[in-house]
């Protein structure tokens, strides 16, 4: 691979990693608190549609990204009511939520977004000096602000989870909810907060797809990126730094399909094989990372002792 081709693949890979990274960071918070949120796919889809609607209404990229946060949190509230308060099965509820999200966004698309066409995507900013490093500069330091922010968010999530009282509550609710409650932590409240925050980030992740990649909303535009984010959390062993690496890995696996012309070795294989690469990589990743341990209480609804009469 020539250096130019390598730079193209890397820089496209990092660009494509951004939505998955936001969603995976959100999902990390949620899973740390003891909830498995398959609905992340649907929340991303709703975030993407929101961003497209805001842009269509004439607002800028920043406004679109900002609006997707509370919309994602609103989805989180619906999911928290179901998962945490009603104690529904999390896998089944997540899948059904995604069905509703697909129906809702496709309906909105048909009514408001069909034929809007591609608008320009958010501009990239070159970081002074750093962007001039060969290969690394154009790949990592010539990206959209949403990428720089996502890396900063990874650091913040790390600090919040491991350095604050909120983080401690999160970890104890996800590992030993009964003990947490005995120690005075409101497990239900912690899980609600985690779902609000985590899905806000997932909504932003969905918005990134429209704002930094496609420039337009299409039905089911997420194409499984929410599910890939779930795999990235496991692959990243529930650590923000590894999750950044994992997201970039999937971004690069995803990048090949867009660069087939510039990669001579890629043209000997069917196009579908390159399209399949991220999904195959996900299967391999979840199979190999089975030793990564989920927080002990993930997926189990919690019945507070006070309500156990």
């Amino acid at each position: 691979m020539s250096q130019a081709a390598l730079v193209t693949i890397l820089s496209t890979g990092v660009l494509l990693a951004v939505p998955v990274l936001w969603a995976a960071l959100g999902e990390l918070i949620v899973e740390k608190s003891g909830t498995l949120n398959l609905g992340v796919e649907g929340v991303m889809l709703i975030g993407a549609a929101t961003a497209a609607l805001v842009v269509k209404a004439g607002a800028g990229f920043a406004a679109a990204a900002l609006v997707s946060l509370p919309v994602g949190a609103l989805c989180g509230a619906v999911l928290a009511y179901l998962y945490v308060s009603r104690r529904t099965d999390q896998i089944v509820t997540g899948i059904l939520f995604n069905l509703v999200a697909l129906g809702l966004t496709t309906t909105l698309f048909a009514r408001y977004l069909n034929g809007v066409g591609e608008v320009s995507t958010a501009p990239r900013y070159a970081v002074p000096l750093l962007s001039r490093i060969p290969v690394v500069g154009p790949s990592l330091f010539t990206q959209t602000p949403l990428f720089y922010l996502s890396v900063a968010a990874a650091v913040l999530v790390l600090l919040a989870v491991h350095g604050t009282w909120f983080g401690l509550g999160l970890l104890s609710a996800g590992e030993q909810p009964r003990a947490a409650e005995t120690a005075g932590i409101d497990v239900i409240r912690v899980r609600w907060k985690a779902l609000l925050a985590g899905n806000a980030l997932a909504g932003l992740g969905g918005a990134c797809i429209v704002l930094t990649q496609s420039g337009a909303f299409l039905p089911n535009i997420t194409n499984g990126q929410g599910y890939i984010a779930l795999a990235v959390v496991v692959l990243g062993r529930f650590k923000p730094a590894y999750i950044v690496l994992g997201a970039v890995f999937f971004g690069i696996a995803n990048a090949f399909q867009f660069q087939l012309q510039s990669l001579p070795f890629a043209q000997g294989y069917p196009r579908q094989l390159w399209l399949a690469l991220p999904y195959i990589a996900t299967i391999v990743a979840v199979t190999l990372s089975r030793s990564a341990r989920y927080p002990a209480a993930v997926g189990r609804p919690y019945v507070p002792a006070t309500r156990r009469g």
Partner: peptide, 27 residues
Amino acid sequence: SASLIVQGVFVICLIATGAITVRSRGA
């Protein structure tokens, strides 16, 4: 696609009210 919304909301309501109980193995 509006029909997907009805289908999804319908079944979610049934699960949320406890009319159908499903428990998977979780994560």
